[in-house]
């Protein structure tokens, strides 16, 4: 074995790190620079610390007619949380029913849930929009979240986790007189905590990053998510305030990246074990 550091490997990995980090650094650096200079093509990788004032500015007031960024961040956060928590709750409940009970049409129920895997919103844009408008869900917060909550993937994952719980544990709980709901709450949820955490990360990112769905069902500026808001900003033809756009982009990126990095241990385990 050689003891010399593996320079080639370090070089490759650093190249990868730079490939990922460079565009984000550029957007951060640009957010602190003069919008007119950027317009002239003079963007640079050196941030100007004096320009950081743009952040409180866009957070409180927005720019170019957009809603204030804090408001768009709240809408995104609400959407991500509602989707993540909603998906986890209804998937835990249905997986629990399928694994621990025998009831009529159990298999049918499972297959109906499974079918949702095959029907992502992207493939049924028009008819889903029609159903949404019949139910008066266009331009409402429930309209942005509830239709995305049904989840075959999460149900499959929990079914797998619950199926691995040893029979002895169930037996012991029953001997102690625990009813089905007590068992779910006191035993099953605690032993699945790591899986729930992992799934939460994946679903939070999924919810935060939605674009097509809110674009379809929410057209009022009051319901703009941060991702929708930023794409609207770059679509403005004249007088684009580039530093404000870039500051908004940094703020849009930050929350999901923080969640993934902070919870990476659970996230990686959940992704590679559950989704295979």
């Amino acid at each position: 074995m050689k003891n010399r550091p593996d320079y080639v490997a370090h070089a490759c990995l650093l190249l990868g790190v730079v490939l990922f980090a460079l565009p984000v650094w550029l957007v951060f650096a640009g957010s602190t620079q003069d919008s007119n200079a950027i317009e002239r093509g003079e963007i640079s990788l050196m941030p100007h610390l004096g320009g950081l004032g743009i952040y409180p500015d866009v957070l409180l007031h927005g720019s170019m007619g957009s809603a204030p960024v804090w408001h768009m961040l709240m809408v995104s956060f609400g959407m991500a949380m509602a989707i993540a928590v909603g998906k986890i709750v209804i998937s835990v409940l249905s997986a629990y029913a399928v694994v621990f009970f025998r009831f009529p049409f159990r298999r049918t129920a499972f297959w109906v849930i499974f079918i949702t895997l095959m029907l992502p919103p992207e493939v049924r844009i028009i008819p889903t929009y029609a159903v949404m408008s019949q139910m008066h869900l266009i331009n409402t917060f429930p309209g942005m979240t509830v239709p995305l909550i049904a989840s075959a993937t999460a149900t499959l994952l929990f079914r797998q986790v619950f199926a691995a719980v040893p029979d002895e544990l169930v037996e012991a709980a029953r001997m102690d007189g625990a009813g089905p709901l007590r068992f779910l709450w006191d035993i099953l949820l605690p032993v699945s905590a790591a899986n729930i955490a992992a799934l939460f990360v994946i679903l939070f990112v999924y919810g935060w990053n939605q674009y097509l769905w809110p674009l379809l069902v929410a057209t009022t500026p009051g319901l703009d998510t941060i991702v929708i808001g930023i794409v609207k900003m770059i679509g403005v033809e004249t007088q684009t305030q580039w530093n404000a756009v870039m500051a908004t982009a940094v703020l849009a990126l930050l929350p999901p990246v923080v969640v993934v990095v902070a919870m990476q241990r659970w996230f990686i385990a959940g992704l590679t074990e559950g989704d295979k």
Binding site: I90, S91, L93, S94, Y96, A97, V98, V99, F100, F101, R102, F103, P104, R106, A109, V112, I113, I115, T116, L119, R124, T128, V131, M135, V146, P147, I149, A150, S151, T155, A163, D167, V170, E171, R174, P180, L181, F183
Partner: peptide
């Protein structure tokens, strides 16, 4: 699984939210 809980009303109630969303929106 060998050990199961009895009854069918509770499990049906538990899968119902998921089924409802699937029917209405999928």
């Amino acid at each position: 699984r060998r050990t199961l809980f009895q009854g069918w009303k509770l499990p049906v109630a538990l899968v119902l939210p998921q089924l409802l969303l699937t029917f209405v929106f999928f």
